[in-house]
Write a protein that binds this DNA or RNA. Structure first.
Lengths: 225, 225
DNA sequence: GTCTATAGTTAGATAGAC
DNA sequence: GTCTATCTAACTATAGAC
């Protein structure tokens, strides 16, 4: 049974990795749909197609599983967005950031919803993160925006309001997608829609902060069925 | 006991109205903090300072109580925002709307969070509303914005993106207030902060859509402690 | 209209056979 | 590593005395 030829992947851990991945995906769906308290381990096990006991075998308890998910989301968030510095051209940097955030909403809607639920419900499992890394990151970016304003490259808008504006407007298409979809006539959002959203948001936000938007007319629009 | 002088308010219903109000307020807190599934009737009763059975006496079950809350929120939403028509000046109308939405976030943060949780979790209790009244309202306002664009009063931005931008950016200060507060150094948002947010958002959004913002320099800013 | 007691259900978690 | 059986706790809801 220890013959290394008997399996392509190492025996020890292959099933483990596989099952853990299934559980994590199932948990992502469940926590996104119900929040932490509302989520049930039974339901996660069902979604993963595994007996409940197996879920407890891989993740000791509900909180551990949830924390693992939050950690994954924060790590993804940290790597997904390029660093912005005062030397960058603001229109380019902010435009790229808006586009990246919109595409994150397209690609990782459940991660966005889990994070949103956690914050809405008072962030009981993220208070440490909010008071440290998050705060530092946000204050650092605020200084960059202030520097741009001091150089006259953008209007002297409050940096926090601008950052929160970009976040909320882009995350909206993940967190509130049900609302968006319902007004479009129940067709789901596709690649073109997200491009369209990114273009329109970039126009409004860049121009609104005194920068030149990439497109000044013939903006694309969402099609309502 | 039927002497009308014995009580200022009518006997029948006074306790009822009083208790119902306490339960509704308690439920608002609980549902905002835990979402529908995560909320517990036990916890609501504790918050209201009443035995659990009394909560069931006034509201037969959890779903009924929740639906009552959603209805209240929608009614408040419908009456809280003035009607906007194509004849209005867009800068004035949109500016007033942004300000009203920001102040709604200040005054009714829990209502906003309950609504947000419901949508994030797939709006299982609001699907009918989303497909009827909500959709009609949004399509009507889209036509107003289109009319303004056709008259050259604003840039031809996608109306849905603009409306969602206003909603998400303003609701952010209710739904994600924990996040905002944490970066400000754990001081809570006051009247001045909300005014500041409204002013900055109005500047960016009006200017971003090609209108003249009320203030073009010396924008106020959030103070970080 | 109030409140105790409790029925009935479901949840989280674990023991132990396989 | 898997899975049945089971324990304990929490929750929704109701019955019935006051």
């Amino acid at each position: 049974m220890n013959n290394p030829d008997s399996q392509t992947l190492p025996r020890t851990g292959r099933i483990r990795i596989d099952n853990q991945a299934r559980i994590i995906e199932a948990a992502e769906m469940e926590f996104a749909e119900a929040g932490y308290k509302g989520a049930s381990m039974v339901s996660i096990a069902k979604r993963a197609g595994l007996p409940r006991a197996n879920v407890h075998y891989y993740f000791n308890n509900k909180l551990e599983l949830y924390n693992r998910l939050l950690l994954d989301i924060l790590q993804l968030w940290n790597t997904a967005f390029s660093q912005i510095t005062a030397e960058d051209d603001p229109a380019e940097a902010i435009g790229a950031y808006i586009r990246a955030k919109v595409m994150y909403s397209k690609t990782n809607p459940r991660a966005s919803r889990i994070f949103a639920s956690e914050i809405i419900q008072g962030a009981p499992h993220l208070s440490e993160y909010l008071e440290t890394d998050f705060r530092d990151w946000l204050r650092g970016k605020s200084r960059v925006i202030d520097a741009w304003a001091a150089q006259g490259k953008i209007d002297p808008v409050d940096p926090l309001v601008l950052i929160f504006l970009i976040w909320s407007a882009t995350q909206h298409y993940a967190d509130f997608s049900v609302q968006v979809v319902s007004v479009l006539g129940d067709r789901s959002l596709d690649e073109v829609d997200f491009e369209m959203v990114a273009t329109n948001l970039t126009h409004i936000i860049l121009k609104g902060c005194g920068m030149k938007p990439p497109t000044d007319h013939s903006l694309p629009r969402l099609a309502m069925s």
